Amino acid sequence: MPPSPPRATVSTAIAGRVISYAASRGLPRGDLLALAGMSAGSMADMDGRIAVTSLDAVWAHVVRALDDPGAPIHFAAQTRLEDMHVAGFVVMTCTSAREALDRVDRYMVLLTDTPRWELDETTDRGAPFVALHRWPRFTLGARIATECHLAVHLRCFRQCAGVEFSPLRVTFRHAAPRDLAAHRDFFRCPLEFEAPRDGFAFPASLLEIVPRDANPALSEFFFRHAEDLRRRRAAEPSRTSDQAREVVARLLASGEPSASVVARRLGTSERSLRRHLEEEGTTLRQIVGEVRHQTAEELLREGDASLTEIAFLLGFSDVATFARAFKRWSGRTPGRFREEARGGRAPPAASGANRGASDG
């Protein structure tokens, strides 16, 4: 049976730190909370979760409002392992940097479901390479989040090692932002954009370094605690509709996925898929419409893709079909929606009827 796709969520405590950072730079906290779908009281809740796409939208808003492509790098420079609660302490008390990197991958799920980290010691010109695996998305917010993930990982690696080392290189799959001053100052190494993968290479000697906060007794304590939290997280029920949304989002560029394809990706039968979706009050057709609608708004609001490119990414046969579907969802043409979003007037959220609209 193939593995289920990830539930794309992030801890509200992590989102709260991003919001606090943006507020410290003058952006209205209330607007940021509303964009994330959070309350002020949830900002420190490690157990609370919001959609990753909501935090991506916050990041896109922050960078646009501040007119600062370096915002995610400045945020990362202020981050410490202690800010990550148990996930941070189980890493910082390790007895070697190699063990710390392994634990980052194992316990990142306590903070967010989507990124996975892999230590590759075989393919990057003889140097160890920390690779970030994140489901590909095409929005400004997703690109900013990738830069933030890599910078935070490096910041914490430096803290753990007790050495302000420079990577050998840092690579990104997306195109370079217009201003790289903050990136160059923080990473202090060659930066490669539009590369095959996201990550950074570093000197092999760092793998065996003993972290400055190494403590075998505390490490064992936090390891047991983190394992318990990880098991609880894994035991939480995963809604079939959430899993189906992730599958649909990854397959749309190849056209609208059929029930048989989605069921096969989830390791179930079409009949079981339909039954579970019906029990959760939805259908695959509704899910396809919801994913297309949400992704279209993200791309129109945050990205520079043309309408033709967006139609292709969403699996429509042509721009006209996409435009008709989008007008049914939002009451606007795609061009009008983009114009309003770029003009600083946030379009109202879709009504309950529109959220369930299909595109057929």
Results as ranks from 00 to 15, higher is better:
L27Y: 02
F157Y: 09
S330H: 12
A161W: 11
L206M: 07
A357M: 10
F221G: 01
E246A: 10
R265N: 15
E309Y: 02
D228L: 07
G352M: 02
C189W: 01
T53M: 08
D83L: 06
E256S: 13
V247C: 05
T79Y: 06
F129V: 03
H153K: 07
I209A: 13
G289C: 06
H85D: 15
P177V: 01
T112S: 08
V248Y: 08
R143M: 10
A341K: 08
T93V: 01
R274D: 04
A175R: 04
R143P: 00
L32A: 13
A325I: 11
F322M: 13
S258Q: 09
A217L: 06
T112Q: 07
V86E: 09
F223H: 11
G199V: 04
S238Q: 14
P72L: 02
P347N: 15
S11T: 09
V262S: 14
E208S: 12
F337H: 08
D67V: 15
P211H: 11
S205Q: 10
V247M: 02
D120P: 12
A357P: 03
E290T: 13
A44M: 08
I310Y: 02
R233F: 09
R169G: 03
A8W: 04
A34N: 06
E236R: 13
R178T: 13
C160H: 11
H293N: 14
D56I: 06
D45H: 00
W59Q: 07
S20L: 03
L252F: 11
A350G: 15
T295R: 11
L110Q: 06
E208M: 09
T282A: 06
R336G: 01
D56V: 05
G26T: 03
A323N: 12
A341E: 13
T112L: 01
L180A: 05
L229G: 05
T95H: 07
A36P: 04
S260V: 12
H85I: 09
G16M: 09
P203I: 03
A234S: 07
F316I: 05
V62N: 03
Q286I: 10
A357K: 09
N215D: 13
F138W: 13
L33D: 05
R49K: 14
H153M: 10
R49T: 13
S258D: 15
L207I: 07
E340W: 12
G352H: 04
F157G: 01
A253S: 14
V104D: 03
V10Y: 00
Q294R: 14
H225D: 11
R324P: 01
A182S: 14
G16T: 14
L251K: 09
L110G: 02
A234R: 08
T308M: 10
I209P: 00
R158D: 03
R224A: 13
R7C: 03
A195F: 08
W135D: 09
F312P: 00
A259P: 04
H174Y: 01
S4G: 01
E256H: 00
M108T: 12
S205L: 10
P347V: 08
